[in-house]
């Protein structure tokens, strides 16, 4: 199984769709309809990208320009004053560090624990295997809000409130990661496992040295999506973190909104920092994103 053979998604996607975009001219297309198509697509691309552009423009514009009409569509004159104010008035670097700790830890741990459990459920037959699988499936279907209160009280009992442990530990592995890796590894060649076993390798070594290297594409998708999800996570960290120095970037940003109610330049300067890591990840792994969505669709 290599990068160019997306066997998993193709076979599990609800409609069995192929992954690589296949182009095919359908219908007679006059040049007029082509122009209209391009116009509509470009208009919508503008609608979806403009707000992101506006974050950067607002962050780089002096406060006097931000609150003036007509709005200036490029920072004029560009300035870093909003960033300077942001560094002085918030704990932005602490928030970024906390978010990095949370999202990297949760992503790595989901890769390791998700692959461990997924491998066992995909390749081992043992009493209790189907019960374990059903536990995974059923917990995946329960909306998080239903268990919010007991989760909060449990974390409180454990003494984890206002600490990153409350955000990290419950999600060290989530059911979806196990399910995804189980589905992914079902097509893993059993002969490779048998051969390693004949060479005297234990299960843990097989997992780390035989299975995980081959399963890299699936692991990459899981890791990237988990990282982005937890970098962007808001609701749960909002509930369990409270001191300013313990907040994640998203919760920190939301406090700016309520503390400086109309300081748009300041908010957007913070938003720039919240966006940069996910942009880097997106542009480095764009292929995996577009593939990951189709793999993720097996969730349904």
């Amino acid at each position: 199984m290599n990068d160019s053979q997306p066997a998993l998604a193709a076979s599990r996607n609800p409609s069995g769709a192929a992954l690589e975009p296949r182009t095919r001219r359908r219908g007679r297309r006059t040049s007029a309809t082509r122009v209209i198509a391009f116009l509509l697509l470009t208009l919508w691309a503008l609608v979806s990208l403009f707000p992101l552009y506006w974050v950067f423009v607002t962050a780089l514009s002096p406060p006097s320009v931000v609150m003036s009409t007509p709005p200036r569509l490029i920072p004029d004159p560009p300035t870093l004053v909003n960033f300077v104010r942001l560094f002085g008035r918030s704990q932005i670097f602490g928030w970024l560090a906390n978010s990095a700790i949370v999202s990297v830890t949760v992503a790595l741990s989901n890769i390791l624990l998700g692959t461990m459990a997924g491998y066992v459920l995909a390749k081992k037959r043992f009493p209790g295997a189907s019960i374990a699988f059903w536990i995974v499936i059923l917990t995946m279907m329960i909306p998080g809000q239903a268990t919010l209160v007991p989760m909060y009280l449990l974390v409180n009992k454990l003494g984890w409130l206002d600490s990153l442990r409350a955000v990290i530990v419950p999600d060290l592995v989530i059911a979806f990661s196990i399910f995804l890796m189980k589905q992914y590894l079902t097509s893993f060649p059993t002969e490779m496992i048998e051969a390693a076993k004949l060479d005297g390798a234990g299960e843990l070594r097989i997992l780390l040295q035989v299975v995980m290297p081959v399963a890299k594409p699936g692991i990459a998708v899981l890791g990237i999506f988990t990282f982005v999800d937890y970098w962007n996570g808001f609701f749960w960290p909002l509930l369990v973190l409270s001191s300013s120095e313990n907040l994640t970037i998203q919760v920190g940003l939301s406090t700016l909104r309520f503390q400086f109610t109309t300081d748009f330049g300041l908010w957007n300067a913070g938003a720039v920092f919240a966006m940069i890591p996910v942009f880097i990840v997106f542009f480095s792994f764009q292929r995996y994103f577009l593939r990951g969505i189709t793999i993720g669709a097996i969730k349904g």
Binding site: A45, L49, P51, V55, A271
Partner: peptide, 28 residues
């Protein structure tokens, strides 16, 4: 085009909400 349409989806709900709140502002 797919990348252009997908990019906003990796941006957090909080960032999106902040910038739209600013775009929705009745005065500015």
């Amino acid at each position: 085009y797919k990348a252009a349409f997908y990019l906003p989806m990796v941006v957090s709900g909080v960032v999106m909400s902040l910038v739209w709140l600013w775009m929705f502002d009745p005065v500015y």
